[in-house]
Amino acid sequence: MDIEVSNLSKTYITVKALRSVSLSVDRGESVGLVGANGAGKTTLLHILMGFLPFDEGSVKILDKPSARLDAATKERIGFVAEETGLLPWATLMDMAELYKNLYPTWDEDMLDRFIDEWDIVTDKRMRSMSKGQKRLAELALCFSCNPEILVLDEPFVGLDAVMRFSVLSAMKTLNAQQRTTIFYSSHILSDIEKIAKRVIFIRGGKISLDEQIASLKSSVEETFIQNYGISADGLIDAGGSR
């Protein structure tokens, strides 16, 4: 099991951010985390990466407690935060040079492919790049590390529809070809649906639903048929044709 969280609770002074959260993600799985603003998605991902302490429960990533991740374990994890943290004075190539020495699985060719495909500026310093460019640079660096697990917090923020699609395709390829475990959060269900096999809904710091996308779709379908006498697809088609 790549990710294992059991009975995790976290309180910020008086606000309960997470309440007895338990989940697990297997090797090669692609899991989406959906929730409204303030639901606890970022807190959960930050605890998973060992950035934040927690009150109760246990959190393991690659069989190591998240609070004590060593360099060897971190080499196997790719993380992209909601807010970019790339060093403002460095260019993409500066960062790539550093990553090349820090990650043994670094794939230079993959980075070159992303640079070409996503048209990323390589000679500009991060502070001079647009939000979308910075996001693409960060994702390209993260993917090129060839990690075993990708932990992504709102990875599509600041990206246009075309780039969003391209990033989703890249994630799908990594998941299919390298069996990379993907655990990512998003507000947008359609982004989750495109590559995730499983979706976890989080609400008020609690997991309200943890289900395979396929079974979720079929249960939604049944509900629609029971209540409206029409399939969800039919409704969407009808809406679309209007």
């Binding site: 990466m49 374990t73 971190k74 935060a81 943290g85 403002p88 820090l102």
Partner: peptide, 16 residues
């Protein structure tokens, strides 16, 4: 949430 600057988080996520 993280109570730290994004750059710090970036370094924390790196294998260093």
């Amino acid at each position: 949430n993280a109570l730290c600057a994004p750059i710090t988080r970036h370094f924390q996520a790196m294998p260093v």
